[in-house]
Amino acid sequence: MAKPQDFNTHVTPTWCPGCGNFGLWQGFKESLSELGLEPHQIAMVFDIGCCGNGVNWHNLYGFHSLHGRTVPVAEAIKMANHNLKVIAASGDGGGYGEGGNHFLHGCRMNFDITLLIHNNQIYGLTTGQASPTTDTGMETKTTPSGQLEQPFHPLQVAIPQGASFVARTFAGDIKHCKEIFKQAIEHKGFSLVDVLQPCITWNKVNTFQWYKERIYKLEDENWNTKDKDAALIKAGEWGEKIPIGVLYVGDQSSYESQLPQIKDKSLVEQGVTSGDISEFLEEFK
């Protein structure tokens, strides 16, 4: 069985020392290990940015996509080979901004993929510009007088939009990350995990300390993950108190599980052979 460290490559992470990504990464590797997965059984699509650079130190089938383009690539991998565990990883810029349309529709298509968002409320690798989740009033390089916009609330969008697993965790709590990731990967449908992940270099407001003072765990409150309406309200809680944990789990069928083309075998297992077109030609006679 693969151990967490088996998912490392020889490459040393280039993240800043103390980056929230380290906790997230550790929790992620432990979740894969505890689920009994081997590196070759996972296809993981990475965005561009600090999260995306992680492709180099994840020992699994990594696809380093373009900015904002993780979800469609992951969805198609799942359609082509549903035996794989398919994961997409992105920052808040790629996931909610550049890839916003894919996120919106990925929720309602409900493929059995897991979307991990490294949400630090700022652009990291491009050196500190406002992101879709930057809080109103925050000063960044591109909003020197303070952000004028309202922040994007990913969980509050995902629930009514049809995502069947919606959760949030915190990179400062490795064990919590691991537990949430395990459930997300095991869930048969579109799983969103919004990971609060402090950027220690560019975001001096939403720090580890800031989050620690605000977060509380839904599982400590016996939260009912089946109550969609309550989940939608809970998903909007932000500010003095921030809930983490699994907010909502739906039971709608995943997209690919409804495809008759892959009922018996995945497309990849079917191989490439010339299809017979004679029956279709009849339509043109």
Partner: peptide, 12 residues
């Protein structure tokens, strides 16, 4: 990007 994802996974 879907077409690319499927191609990467091994189908035409």
């Amino acid at each position: 990007h879907m077409a690319i994802g499927a191609g990467y996974a091994g189908v035409r």
